[in-house]
């Protein structure tokens, strides 16, 4: 934090710009009706009005930041470290969720290739052990990856804890219920 930070000013400008973009480009081009519409001789509120109110909140907020709060003390600002951290987290999440999505189908495809049976993951997505493969693999990578990010190294302990945590989650969300589907089995 810095008392000389201009983050409020930059944030204010961003909000002003975004609200104007909303009001004059996005809302008019991506909404079918205006603020007020006449339908069958009755005047009603159109679909543009509510998002315009949202834009107004952003516009007023941006204006107050720019005009009144631009020199407020203790303005936090985004740093390279913030971006590096969130970038690393998103990378781990993207990787783990991709594993979660494709591990099960891949395991079925490999098994089919070896056994010669024509298996299809979609039909097995509510059958153990197939339904757990993606969740276990992706879940372990997600938890262990984030622990490793904080600890600065990957340890066997982190992997073990992750595996245990994933098994506990399966016990909570899957074993007692017939109608709940673990990710990614709802839309494969």
């Amino acid at each position: 934090m810095s008392s000389r930070s201009k983050s409020n000013l930059y944030l204010g400008f961003c909000c002003l710009g975004f609200s104007l973009l909303l009001l004059f480009v996005w809302i008019p081009l991506d909404t079918e009706t205006g603020w007020i519409e006449k339908v069958r001789r009755q005047i009603t509120i159109g679909d543009s009005l509510a998002p315009s109110v949202a834009a107004l909140f952003l516009l007023v907020g941006g204006a107050i930041l720019t005009l009144i709060e631009r020199k407020a003390p203790g303005q936090p600002k985004l740093t390279g470290a913030n971006m590096r951290f969130i970038g690393s987290v998103l990378l781990i999440l993207f990787f783990s969720l991709t594993i979660m999505r494709y591990c099960g189908p891949l395991a079925v495809a490999i098994t089919s290739a070896f056994t010669g049976d024509e298996l299809e993951y979609r039909l097995l997505r509510d059958t153990a052990p197939w339904k757990y493969i993606g969740y276990i693999c992706g879940g372990i990578v997600l938890i262990a990856g984030l622990i490793a990010l904080i600890e600065g190294r990957m340890t066997g302990r982190a992997v073990l804890i992750s595996a245990l945590a994933v098994l506990v989650l399966i016990a909570i969300y899957d074993l007692p219920f017939d109608d709940l589907l673990l990710p990614p089995n709802g839309d494969v």
């Binding site: 909404t31 009706t33 998002p51 909140f57 952003l58 007023v60 907020g61």
Partner: peptide, 22 residues
Amino acid sequence: PAKGLISAGLGLLAVYIGTGED
């Protein structure tokens, strides 16, 4: 108040995406 308005504005915008009567 400015940041509160921005937060509320973003919340309103998010809920209005993909909805409406048309």
